[in-house]
């Protein structure tokens, strides 16, 4: 028997098989996309923190009536990303952006607005409040700041338990809000690739339980912790401060990028996926977004309806270990 006859598949059969596999693969990919719920993300151009931020936010928020219904007459908790104070680096959600969001939620009828954060790197929240200027902006508005690091802890049980910690402590102020709004900065991150509305939830874990920084979350895996916190807390809304973002060695030591955008939406994974695309990075390569996708979240651009302004993506630099995220 010629040796070629021993080959179990002819070339033609191999080609046919390859075509079939490709079709199956496309089918699986399409099915994976189709099973992702449709999501909406609003982008708004805004080049300066001195712009009419309240007006821009109100206009954008009007596209989300279900969120507004929760805000009206309710207690809105704004959870910005406050990390450390280095005046030359845009590390934190800008205080003017936070104050504008507080004013916007009061304007739409929130009974109470609280700004709350449990900074991972700074125990001295008084210093953080005073040096960022946030204290000066919130006081005249009568908007209180709650240090979530010192807040009473409530145990939550993430459904997938990726951290294998079983339960996670989350601040009571967060869990008792009628509307929790995650307000991250648009940044790259040296451990997670990007840090956006889902990673921002690390700050909901009280430091008095997990310490500074929240080291048990690192030991349990940062993507695991992000996904578990998101799936257990399920914030109803997020607004990303991308007016000036950070690239490179974020979340602290990176470089400013004037991106001139703010994003908002009710679906946090979809919002983070779109924000990642604006940084010309691939959300499918971000581990925590892959995990969220497995839990039924929306990441595919084909399932995300973009509202508002058309924003041209701009490549954000990432550290070498995340070069694979480059689109």
């Amino acid at each position: 028997m010629p040796s070629s006859d021993k080959t179990p598949f002819s070339r033609r059969a191999l080609l046919a098989g390859a075509a079939g596999l490709a079709a199956t693969s496309v089918g699986v990919a399409s099915w994976q996309q189709l099973r992702q719920p449709k999501a909406r993300v609003l982008q708004a151009r805004c080049d300066s923190y001195d712009a009419n931020l309240v007006g821009i936010l109100l206009e954008g928020m009007a596209a989300f009536p279900a969120m507004l219904a929760k805000a009206r007459g309710g207690h809105v908790v704004l959870k910005p990303n406050l990390v450390e104070v280095h005046p030359d680096r845009p590390i934190n959600t800008d205080p003017r952006f936070i104050a504008a969001a507080a004013a916007a939620f009061l304007e739409v009828g929130a009974a109470r607005v609280t700004v709350a954060e449990g900074a991972g790197h700074t125990r001295d929240a008084e210093f953080l409040l005073e040096r960022t200027g946030l204290d000066e902006l919130l006081r005249p508005m009568g908007v209180p700041f709650v240090d979530l690091n010192l807040d009473e802890a409530v145990d939550v049980r993430p459904p997938a338990n990726l951290t294998r910690l079983g339960k996670l402590p989350v601040a009571r102020t967060v869990m008792s809000a009628d509307l929790l709004v995650s307000m991250p900065k648009l940044k790259t991150h040296h451990w997670a690739g990007v840090t956006l509305s889902m990673k921002n939830l690390f700050g909901t874990v009280p430091g008095h339980v997990f310490g500074w920084p929240k080291n048990p979350l690192h030991w349990a895996g940062i993507p695991n912790s992000i996904t578990d916190l998101w799936s257990a807390i399920r914030p109803s809304f997020a607004i990303v401060d991308g007016i000036v973002g950070m690239e490179g060695d974020g979340p602290i030591m990176g470089t400013a990028v004037p991106m001139g955008v703010l994003l908002m939406g009710e679906d946090l994974p979809a919002l983070d996926a779109q924000a990642t695309r604006l940084m010309k990075l691939r959300p499918e390569g971000v581990e925590y977004l892959r995990q969220a996708l497995e839990l039924g979240a929306t990441v595919s651009k084909h399932r995300i309806e973009l509202l508002g302004d058309v924003i041209t993506p701009r490549p954000f630099d990432v550290i070498e270990s995340f070069h694979r995220l480059r689109a």
């Binding site: 125990r123 997990f210 310490g211 500074w212 080291n215 048990p216 690192h218 030991w219």
Partner: peptide, 13 residues
């Protein structure tokens, strides 16, 4: 000493 057992040593604890 650590904040939480089973994790690394930190300055304050």
């Amino acid at each position: 000493w650590s904040w939480v057992s089973g994790t690394a040593a930190w300055i304050q604890p």
